Computed example of a mutant assay.
Amino acid sequence: MARELHFKKEKEPRRRQLIDQMAKMSVSVRMYTGSCTPKTEEAVRQQCLRRAVEDLLESRAHRLVLDTRNERDDHDRRTIQETLGTQPSKTELTYEHLDSTLEPLLWISDAVAWCFGAAGNWTHKIEGLIEEHIRL
């Protein structure tokens, strides 16, 4: 078994195999996207994260796991804390950044994001995994 999966590093036949296996799992993805340039990428990420946290709070979720970006994790933490407000303990939502080697479910979001970006037939292959696509 692989220690971790980075979809962009996989060869095409393996990508197809992985997506087919993910489609058989009882998982779904809520995808948040926004239009950005290299200069606005971080701001758009934080806008998407803010909306995701709001949606998680509304659905009474208990855990959010993000793939670590090391020193850039501070941006995410600030956004999450601001969104949780002054009494985050009342929300029961915990959050953490993990290396994808520690959380295999992060592999699914990585694969879906790659397929979405690749477009064409790859987007078609992940349609069944996407529960909702929120465009900001």
Rank of each mutant, 00 (worst) to 15 (best):
E131W: 01
F116S: 07
M22E: 09
S35A: 14
M31W: 09
I108Y: 10
R51W: 07
K125M: 04
L64T: 10
W122D: 10
K11H: 12
W107V: 07
L84P: 03
T83H: 04
V53Y: 00
E4W: 08
R51P: 10
M25G: 11
T68W: 09
A118I: 11
E54S: 09
E4R: 11
H6R: 09
R78E: 02
S59V: 10
L56T: 06
E131A: 06
S59G: 05
T79H: 02
K24R: 12
R30T: 15
V53P: 01
L106W: 04
R77E: 08
A61S: 12
T37H: 05
G120M: 12
A119T: 11
T123A: 04
K90L: 09
T40D: 04
L105I: 14
V53F: 00
P13F: 02
E10G: 01
R3K: 08
A119V: 07
E10T: 05
L106A: 02
T33L: 13
G85N: 03
L56Y: 01
E58Y: 02
P13N: 01
P88S: 12
L57C: 14
K39E: 15
E41R: 14
K24G: 12
R45E: 11
W114L: 07
R60E: 14
D76Y: 08
A43D: 14
E12C: 00
I130V: 10
Q21Y: 10
G85S: 12
K39Q: 15
P13Q: 02
D74I: 15
V29F: 08
P104I: 06
T123C: 02
D20Q: 07
D99P: 13
A113N: 12
T94F: 01
Q47M: 06
L105W: 13
V53H: 01
Y32A: 05
D20M: 12
A23G: 06
E127F: 03
T101Y: 14
A52H: 08
S26M: 13
R15H: 05
D110H: 08
K8M: 08
R72F: 15
H75M: 10
I80F: 05
L84V: 02
R50F: 00
